[in-house]
Design a protein around this nucleic acid. Structure first.
Lengths: 116, 116
DNA sequence: TCAATATATGAATAAGTGTTCATATGATAC
DNA sequence: GTATCATATGAACACTTATTCATATATTGA
């Protein structure tokens, strides 16, 4: 039992919040999606892919990291469904999985008042 | 110099990506914002606050964690500007900082096809 | 088949971070 | 001022994770 000066209003909100809290499993799924794009190294890759499909070598050039590091991060991004890959001869071309990813990025930048 | 079967298209994208890559500092700022909401414990707090302002005790009830853990996470959320706090007598009432936060959450859930 | 190129991956190390426990701060009521 | 309640915070520990290095896999061309 919690007592606070706004017990009346807060208690209602708290009760509703508890009743509508998504399952642990679902919370973790959403959190994982954000985690996928919460690392500077991964975010740079996503920023790069906004300009179009690219193979790994070009991504490495665009973000200025190493081949190994980029490859590791691409695997993570792919496993979270944020990017998709297709083989193209000797190369593998990566692109953003869908428009939701772009929308989230742009919304975040709007919030932070930084231009993309 | 990278060679790939779509050199023509990819090289243009890569060049544009490199030219438009936000500063390291800016990338880190965006990444930090996502990191703020990429932890299940913090995400639950945000889900709870969607139902209205609440003081810490009520948040603890809503998310089912400990007072200390919630307080630590609230500090992080606040430092990233995701929630705002106001003292209210003996309590401190927290609420979502702005509508961008809500929008990002809803967009992510749309992407994941989970209802909020 | 062999060499060369592109990409992936396993292991190891280093850095970051969430929770817990104990304690401190700050506000209210007496 | 003192006791009590709400919240914050520091330290320690466990856990996760990003990068590096070395190496493996897979595709292409000769």
């Amino acid at each position: 039992m919690v007592r606070c000066d706004h017990e009346a209003q807060h208690a209602i909100a708290a009760e509703r919040a508890r009743a509508n809290m998504p399952k642990e499993e679902e919370v973790e799924r959403v959190a994982a999606s954000f985690k996928a794009i919460s690392e500077p190294s991964r975010l740079k890759i996503l920023f790069a892919l906004r300009h179009g499909e690219m193979c790994v070598g070009h991504i490495v050039e665009a973000v200025g990291s190493t081949q190994s590091a980029v490859s590791h991060q691409l695997r993570i991004l792919k496993s979270y469904g944020v990017v998709s890959a297709r083989r193209d001869g000797q190369n593998i071309a990566y692109s953003l999985a869908d428009e939701h990813v772009v929308a989230v990025l742009e919304l975040a930048c709007a919030h932070l008042k930084c231009r993309l």
